[in-house]
């Protein structure tokens, strides 16, 4: 440690300086491109500020008026849409992921070709969501190949209008979200299950526990922190749902705005240059995400052991 040189204190200070230099670019960019915009977004939310034709109205201070009109009109409906489609995608996602993760990690089953399966199920996650939605739109459109095949096979008498039907359109969005994320969740849960001490299973086996008992009494309780983490990050991703319903319905949220999500609503206000209302929608989303972010933060920092496991998580979109 001691080099014998007298300016030891000076050396220490100069290293601290390097710490600031190394983290400076991150924080400067964060300040300019994220924090200041966030501040001004919240600031705009208290103003009447929109474009009507070529005229710009405002900005004039209106207090909470934007928020009141948000909650009295469409926001609850769009929040409901977003949550409904998220739940409809998340429930099958976590169930299938849990099932596959247990199978892959089960030593007695000893499944072959795991790398192939993992590669295939993770693949949809890397797909451009907008292109994937466009693909589904073309395949499931009224005269698309899905309908053509179903009719020619005699399963349907006439084409089923997936995109003009409430549950058809919502179902397609949920199905796409499921398909894009279940592989990712499987891999995360597999890592969690493999982190469980194998001695526990051995001991349970000696005591004559069935595999169902081992699953419910050992696996589930021990991977619970990661399941919670998956749930929260997926919820944050669900709130951001945009690309898939936007492209699938051409931004209209058809039929009857039942697939319009919160971010699509924000996007509509951005396009009509109604920055006051757009700011208010963003602020509502910000408050929701901030609560969820705090939960993620708590789960990452509460204790070392679960932090190590919990980091094997993933943000969802």
């Amino acid at each position: 440690m001691s080099t014998g040189r007298p300016p030891k204190k000076g050396k220490h200070i100069s290293y601290a300086k390097w710490g600031y230099i190394f983290i400076a670019p991150f924080f400067v960019v964060f300040l300019i491109f994220q924090l200041v915009p966030l501040g001004s977004t919240i600031y705009y939310s208290f103003f009447q500020y929109f474009r009507s034709g070529l005229r710009i109205i405002g900005p004039s201070f209106v207090g909470m008026k934007n928020y009141i009109s948000l909650f009295q009109t469409d926001l609850p409906k769009y929040f409901g849409n977003t949550m409904l489609m998220w739940v409809a995608g998340f429930v099958p996602q976590i169930l299938v992921a849990l099932l596959l993760a247990c199978w892959f990690t089960n030593e007695r089953l000893n499944l072959k070709g795991q790398r192939f399966f993992k590669t295939v199920i993770y693949m949809p996650n890397l797909i451009m969501a907008s292109a994937f939605a466009m693909l589904f739109f073309t395949l499931f459109s009224d005269n698309g190949p899905v309908n053509a095949s179903l009719v020619s096979m005699g399963i349907l008498k006439q084409p089923f209008q997936f995109l003009s039907n409430v549950s058809g359109a919502r179902g397609l969005v949920a199905f796409m979200n499921f398909l894009m994320w279940f592989g990712n969740t499987t891999i995360v849960l597999m890592a969690a299950i493999m982190g469980v001490d194998p001695g526990l299973y051995e001991a349970a086996e000696i005591d004559g526990a069935s595999s169902m008992q081992m699953f419910w009494k050992i696996t589930i309780p021990l991977i619970q922190p990661i399941m919670v983490y998956v749930l929260i990050t997926s919820l944050i991703g669900g709130l951001q749902m945009f690309d898939v319903p936007q492209i699938l319905t051409n931004g209209q949220g058809e039929p009857d705005r039942c697939t319009t999500t919160m971010i699509m609503y924000l996007n509509n206000h951005m396009y009509s240059k109604n920055y006051g209302m757009a700011g208010a929608v963003s602020t509502v989303l910000f408050v929701m995400c901030a609560v969820l972010c705090l939960l993620v933060y708590a789960s990452l920092t509460n204790d070392n052991d679960s932090a190590r496991k919990v980091r094997k998580g993933s943000a969802k979109s």
């Binding site: 200041v36 915009p37 977004t41 924000l266 920055y275 989303l285 972010c293 705090l294 990452l300 943000a315």
Partner: peptide, 19 residues
């Protein structure tokens, strides 16, 4: 950094576009 880690970028889009 941990706190903002899962914060979506969409929420500051209004201010971002104006800036």
């Amino acid at each position: 950094i941990l706190l903002i880690m899962t914060m979506p970028t969409q929420i500051s889009a209004v201010g971002f576009v104006n800036e």
